[in-house]
Design a binder for these strands. Structure first.
Lengths: 317, 317
DNA sequence: TTTGCTCATGGGCAATTACTCACCTTCAGG
DNA sequence: CCTGAAGGTGAGTAATTGCCCATGAGCAAA
C-alpha cells in the first residue's frame, strides 16, 4: 500500500479489492476505507479486476449452458434475439420446449402497452406454441396471418394458426383468405389485387414482430404431408437445391429464395422486413437442421427460438 | 412458461436472470424487459440466484502479500502446501474466503485424470467449502468420510459434509455409518469390526488427499454446540491441555493427540498418513488460532488453507 | 527548464441497485 | 365460506455504483 507505481502492485490491489467486493461482499466505501484509498479508486480497482478477468463468475444451473449457446448463436449469425431451451433427449417431439418458450415470447409482445402488429406464419410448431397461450385481452394490437387459410382441397387449413390464436387472444385479427399455393403467378396477382387481400397484405408489411415456423423439405415435410406439393414437385425442388421453407417460400442452402415456378405460385405475404422488424423463427430437431441453418444464414429470419442440439449444430456448421 | 408458480421454474428464472446480470453484464432493467417482468422482480431473481448459490465467484490472482505469508508459513512448519486468502476486517464469519479457496482446491483434485481417493472430515468451514462446489462428474474418484454421520440424538448429523458433496460431485462416495463419539473403546472396536465400516476405514486409509476442518475447543466450540460433549467433559478436557480437534480427535497445544478417555471413544477413522498423503486443514479466525497452530506444529495436517490474520499469528507465535 | 504526454486521483452527479412497505393472490385448515 | 400464513408484486426511497471531468504528479523529449 505504500508503493503504488508498480504495475503488479496495482493488479494485486485490484485483486484484493475485487476479492473484498465479490467474495466478501463489502461495499466500495468499506473497501476504500480498509485499503486507505478513495471510494472512486476502490471502484476503479474493482472494475480493473473485472477487466483483467481476475474475477471469474460461474453459474451452476443447466440453463446456463442454454444461455451461452444462445449468445454464441446470436453473435455468429448477427441475430437480434436467440432463445435456446434444453433438449429433451428422450423425446422425439419437434415442439416440446420451444412451443412453451415461443408462447412466452408471444405473450411478452402482446403485453406491451403500445399497439403493435404481430404477424404469424404457419406450421405445427407455431400451432403448438399458440396452443400454450393463456387468454389475453389486447384490443390495441393487430394480429395478421402471412399465409392463406385454405387447404388444397378447399377446406380451412388446419395449421393456419391465426384462428387458434384468436381463441385465446382478444385482438383484431386478419386472416388471409387465400390458398397457400395458387396455380400460377398471374392468379396470384389477381388474388392479391382484391381489396380484402390487399389490406391484409398492407397490414402484414407493417408487422412489428413476426413468428414463423421453419419447415424442412422432403416427402415427409409439411408441404408434402399437407398436400400442397406433389411428391415429384418436391423432388424437383430438392434437385434445385431447396432445403427449407417459411410460409411456403422455398429457399436454398444459403437461405436465398429460389427463383423457380413454385415460389412464383406462393400466395403468402412476403416475410416482413428483417431490417425494420423482428422476425422470429421457431424450430428444432435434426430434420430441420439444414433448413434452420439456411434461414439464419440468409437472414430470412433475424431471431430464433430453438433447442440445445440445434444450437450446437448451428455453431459447428 | 405461461404458468409461473412452479418452484423449479422460479429457480430457472433466477438462473437466467443471474446469468444475464453477472455473465452477460446486462442491467436489471434490461433483464426485466427481456424477461417481461418488473425491474423489482428482476432484482429479486438476481438476489435469489446469489442466495441459492447458483452464482459462484472466484478470484484468480495470487495476491503478493498473501503469497509471501503462505510461503513463510509453509517453510516455518514444513508443510506441503499453504494457501492464504485476504482477511476481511469487517467480517466475523469463520468461512468467508477460505471456503471458496478450499472449494477451488477440492475442484483441482477432482479434476485430476488419474483416480484418487479423497477423504473429508467435518465442520462448518468444510461444509461451506463443499457448498461452493460446482457440479462435477468424476466417476473415477472415490470420496470417503472420515467421520460418522450420526448425531448424538440419532439423527443424521448436519455437518457431515459427504452428503452435501454427493449432491454436487458425481463420484462413488462412502459415508461412515457411525456416531462421532461412542460410549467406550470396546464399543468402538465392535463397530469398527463390522464389514461395512471396515471397508470404509480401509478406503479412508488409502486417501490421496484429505480435507478437514480444524475445530477449537471451549463451550462455544463445535463439539459442545453440536452436543457431542457435555460442558463438564469439555472443561475437563481443557484442564488436561486440549486446544483443538480434527474429526473429533482432540490434541494438545503441541498438536499431540491426547491419551484420554475422550479420544478412546472417537469413532472417526484415523487421520490419513501425513507421510504419504496430503492432509489439508481449513480454518481461520482468532478463536481457532491456538488450535490451528497446534495442528500444524504437531503435523496433524501437512497443508493449510487460512487467512492473512491467522497466517500472521502463526508466524509470530 | 520547459513542454507535452500519460495516467491516477477525487469530486460531483446520474444511473443503477437494494430495501422497505403495503397490498394481493393462493392455499391449507377450521 | 372464512381466515391466516406464506410468498409474490409494484411503488417509493435510500444506498450504492459508474462515469465524466478537471487536476496534478511523473517523466521523457525538446
Amino acid at each position: 500500500m505504500v508503493r503504488k507505481s508498480e504495475t503488479s502492485g496495482r493488479l494485486d490491489d485490484a485483486a484484493r479489492a475485487g476479492w473484498l467486493y465479490y467474495v466478501a461482499g463489502r461495499t466500495q466505501d468499506e473497501i476504500a476505507s480498509s485499503m486507505g484509498i478513495s471510494r472512486q479508486s476502490a471502484q476503479r480497482l474493482v472494475s480493473l479486476a473485472v477487466a483483467e478477468r481476475l474475477i471469474k463468475v460461474r453459474l451452476d444451473h443447466p440453463i446456463a449452458a442454454c444461455l451461452e449457446l444462445a449468445d454464441a448463436v446470436r453473435k455468429k449469425f448477427s441475430l437480434k434475439h436467440v432463445e435456446v431451451v434444453p433438449s429433451d433427449p428422450g423425446s422425439s417431439s419437434t415442439t416440446v420446449g420451444i412451443a412453451e418458450a415461443a408462447a412466452a415470447e408471444i405473450e411478452r409482445w402482446l403485453k406491451r402497452p403500445d399497439p403493435i402488429v404481430l404477424a404469424v406464419g404457419t406450421g405445427r410448431t407455431l400451432k403448438a406454441a399458440v396452443d400454450q397461450l393463456p387468454a389475453i385481452e389486447c384490443p390495441n394490437h393487430r394480429i395478421v396471418s402471412l399465409t392463406g387459410n385454405i387447404a388444397p382441397d378447399g377446406s380451412a387449413a388446419y395449421y393456419n394458426v391465426i384462428f387458434s390464436m384468436a381463441d385465446a387472444v382478444k385482438a383484431r385479427h386478419f386472416p388471409m383468405p387465400l390458398p397457400v399455393l395458387v396455380t400460377s403467378a398471374e392468379e396470384r396477382e389477381t388474388l392479391h389485387g382484391q381489396q380484402l387481400v390487399r389490406s391484409t397484405l398492407e397490414i402484414s408489411a407493417q408487422a412489428d414482430v413476426t413468428f414463423v415456423g421453419i419447415g424442412e423439405l422432403g416427402i415427409d415435410g409439411p408441404l408434402c404431408v399437407d398436400g400442397f406439393l406433389e411428391k415429384d414437385e418436391m423432388m424437383e425442388l430438392m434437385r434445385n437445391g431447396a432445403v427449407g421453407e417459411i410460409c411456403g417460400w422455398v429457399f436454398d442452402g444459403e437461405g436465398k429464395l429460389l427463383d423457380n415456378p413454385i415460389n412464383e405460385r406462393v400466395a403468402s405475404a412476403s416475410i416482413p422486413s428483417r431490417e425494420s422488424s423482428t422476425v422470429i423463427g421457431i424450430g428444432k430437431g435434426k430434420r430441420k437442421f439444414k433448413a434452420i441453418k439456411a434461414a439464419v444464414m440468409g437472414h430470412q429470419i433475424n431471431a430464433l427460438i430453438t433447442d440445445e442440439d440445434t444450437a450446437e449444430y448451428l455453431l459447428k456448421a
